[in-house]
């Protein structure tokens, strides 16, 4: 049965259904409802909720919990995600799985609390130090966010990687009817032969990102890189709508892609066929498919709630084969369908 749910709360419920019983977090708008939901709901299912003293503590609590092999998550918004960067780098270096939800708001600095997509670089290109990668999933509806939570925990465990759900204030605050998957048994997770469970009848295990000898550290890094390559080969996800025979393709993700879906209908009435290319994995980014699409149209317009961050990946994918104009507003201002339609028309010279 479908239930009307707030985005933040739906994500929390979906995480619990994915077998997550550990949540550490620190309140921050526009996602505090997720934290609050966990504080009510986790005790009901025998889980543990802890409000940390800060995001710095939060990420390190996750580090510890993940070491023991348990599914763990947090949620935050932009300034909090910045504070987590150190721990994220350490967790990536320790090959620790965990799920982060970043409900992005306008920045930089304290910024505002309205929806934005200006943390794309931070999520997909690093943010923390070192040659690490995180899998980044970008849902565009609440239902999709719910469905991606299962995948997020599974990918994290499978590759021993961090997974970030990159949402925005709109997805966090709005309501939509959703259908939840069934509750998974939290013990029914893949065996983790690296987890710190006590060295009973086996040699002790260690989790560390520290290797004083550069050749040792290089060896570790090459292992991470091999994992990342596998993920790039196997886990690229995207949605295409109307791209076949389109006059123009718009590349957009998350909330922005939803708005483009409305623009497609508006444009149709004016005789313009707009296609949508929507990356679901922002890392690994669907470069290959975008490159193929660049052979089929003259123009791929990128639209973002930022001043052009995903745009750089779009240009890498298109590789000069099509024009790549941009339209975006940021700082918490969300482009309206009419504005995007105007940008589309301008891009094709109408």
């Amino acid at each position: 049965m479908k239930m009307l749910f707030k985005g933040s709360e739906a994500i929390a419920e979906a995480a619990i259904r994915a077998g997550c019983r550990l949540y550490f977090g620190y309140p921050i708008t526009p996602q505090s409802e997720l934290t609050e939901y966990m504080s009510r709901r986790l005790p009901e299912v025998g889980g543990t909720f802890l409000q940390a003293e800060s995001e710095v503590a939060t990420v390190n609590m996750m580090y510890g919990a993940s070491c023991t092999g348990k599914r763990v998550m947090t949620s935050t918004s932009s300034p909090g995600f910045s504070l987590m960067m150190e721990g994220i780098s350490y967790m990536a270096g320790g090959e620790l799985p965990a799920v982060f939800v970043n409900v992005v708001r306008g920045g930089p600095g304290l910024g505002d609390i309205q929806p934005a997509q200006s943390d794309y670089f931070q999520a997909t290109k690093g943010g923390g130090h070192g040659d690490y990668r995180m899998i980044v999933l970008a849902p565009h509806t609440i239902q999709e966010a719910v469905d991606l939570m299962n995948l997020a925990f599974d990918l994290a465990d499978k590759y021993r990687m961090l997974v970030t759900i990159l949402a925005d204030g709109m997805l966090g605050q709005m309501m939509e009817p959703v259908e939840f998957p069934p509750m998974r048994d939290p013990n029914d997770v893949p065996e983790k032969d690296w987890a710190l469970t006590g060295a009973k009848g086996r040699p002790p295990r260690k989790v560390t990102s520290f290797h004083i000898d550069p050749y040792e550290l290089e060896k570790m890094n090459l292992r991470y890189q091999a994992t990342y390559k596998k993920v790039e080969e196997n886990e690229v996800r995207y949605e295409e709508l109307n791209t076949d025979g389109a006059d123009i393709i718009v590349a957009a993700y998350g909330t922005m892609a939803r708005i483009v879906k409305t623009v497609i209908h508006m444009a149709e009435k004016e005789g313009i066929k707009v296609g949508l290319f929507r990356p679901i994995t922002l890392w690994p980014f669907p470069y290959k498919r975008l490159n193929e699409l660049a052979d089929t149209v003259d123009t791929i317009l990128t639209v973002e709630m930022s001043y052009g961050q995903m745009l750089e990946d779009v240009r890498l994918g298109v590789n000069g084969k099509a024009k790549t104009p941009f339209y975006g507003r940021s700082a918490g201002v969300v482009p309206t369908p009419t504005e995007v339609l105007d940008a589309v028309k301008k891009a094709i010279g109408r």
Partner: peptide, 24 residues
């Protein structure tokens, strides 16, 4: 309490006090 973010627990919240992150 945390005022701005909607009444979550603060380190100074009294024992037994209900907040949006200490619903019990």
């Amino acid at each position: 309490v945390y005022g701005m973010t909607g009444g979550q627990m603060a380190p100074t919240t009294l024992l037994g006090q209900k907040t949006t992150t200490t619903p019990y």
